[in-house]
């Protein structure tokens, strides 16, 4: 496995947590989530973000509303966390912290 494939797998695994965490800070639409996710490095691609948002909405983790009257007239779909989504984010955050600590202990031990 080359490092590109490995990096893609890492991003794939983290995408849901990244999206939930961003939307957890406030209502956002797709492009804003994309910019937020990729501001600190390419974490989520357009091709995976929109299907992911669709799935999270269908699973009841996100709620959505349309805005058709923004400047420029582009339709925007704004997402917010539902109660279920907030609970999932809390749980995933806790698991992530544990995971990060375990990995750091092993991988960054020789520094």
């Amino acid at each position: 496995m080359d490092t590109n494939t490995w990096q893609t797998q890492l991003r794939k695994g983290a995408a849901e947590l990244v999206v939930l965490a961003l939307v957890g800070k406030g209502e956002l639409y797709g492009l804003q989530i994309l910019q937020g996710a990729n501001g600190a490095g390419d974490l989520v691609s357009e091709g995976s973000l929109y299907p992911l948002l669709n799935r999270l909405e269908r699973d009841g983790k996100l709620t959505a509303r349309w805005s058709m009257t923004e400047a420029g007239g582009h339709p925007r779909k704004y997402y917010a966390l539902s109660a279920d989504g907030a609970a999932l984010l809390d749980e995933m955050r806790t698991l992530w912290r544990g995971f990060r600590t375990s990995i750091s202990t092993i991988v960054e031990d020789d520094r």
């Binding site: 797709g30 492009l31 929109y50 420029g72 582009h74 339709p75």
Partner: peptide, 16 residues
């Protein structure tokens, strides 16, 4: 239709 509208909105905003 909802999926298409979201992608269309995204592309239109980027195109601007």
């Amino acid at each position: 239709g909802r999926i298409a509208l979201e992608i269309r909105g995204h592309l239109a905003e980027v195109a601007s």
